[in-house]
Design a protein around this nucleic acid. Sequence first.
DNA 1: TGCCAGGGTCTTT
DNA 2: AAAGACCATGGC
Length: 293
Amino acid sequence: MQIKTPPRFRFEQSLAYLNRSHLEPLHCIVDGRILKVLKINGQLVLISLGVDEAGNLQIIFPAHQPDDKTRHGLRAYVHEWFDLERDLSPFYELAACDKVLRDIVCRFRGLRLVRIPDLFQALCWAIIGQQINLKFAYTLFRRFVHSFGESHSWQGHTYWLFPRPEIVAGLSVADLVAHQNTRRKSEYLLGMAKLISDGTLSRHGLLAHGSFSKAKSDLLGIRGVGDWTANYVSMRCLGDPEAFPAGDVGLQQAIKLALNLEAKPGCEEINKLAAGWQGWQAYAAVFLYRSLI
DNA sequence: TGCCAGGGTCTTT
DNA sequence: AAAGACCATGGC
């Protein structure tokens, strides 16, 4: 199966982002291809995703050939996963004259906003990652997936699906604290799982008003979701191009390196720089994150 | 070893 | 509204 790619797309750039931690539990990368199990419309499918000679995305099914409906859903998933439907020309124009972005965008040309289509997964990843270093965040995230997710083995390798909110909603705070989550974060994760499993919170519901700012304010109403998390989820899950987690220490670090500053810039200074990124703040963040790998 | 890490809530002023 | 206390644990 083939998926035509848009201009300004280089699979390897997004691949490098996806390959930044060997603790990543939801996919593995072998010989430039992503191996991952997905559940599309209730159908399990193992995919191997890479690029063909023409530079288009190519999906191979190592296990079972899916039916047409599943293929259709998979196509939509990949479009969203790599943000293929966005025309990035305005961003590249903007970045070419920006002192922070110019060099970085040149170095990582072709990178896309790699999205986390599943809202529950995006929220959990953000919450687990709050206030701890990225390596520890991956450790906790992996432990969470391996403990409560669904596994499928094929040819000696085990593939994992992210835990369903109904499963997590049935856990206790103690279950999550035992995994070295803080008590607070455990409460947040359980609360989130309950909101999603009882239907109060959904990705569709967040986007129903067609307004990203409404979605962001709805997210902010959830316990455990502050400015950083609301922006992170708006960016990675909802695809809001203007979402920008300004307080992020990683972004601060990236800007410090890009401008060769002596100290990390504060929120105020970052917002001043970001004023020139209107409409493309999320892409600025994506390239800044990428520069740290 | 002490500071830092892809923050957030709750309380106090 | 703004500032401070507290959370709490691994990484380096």
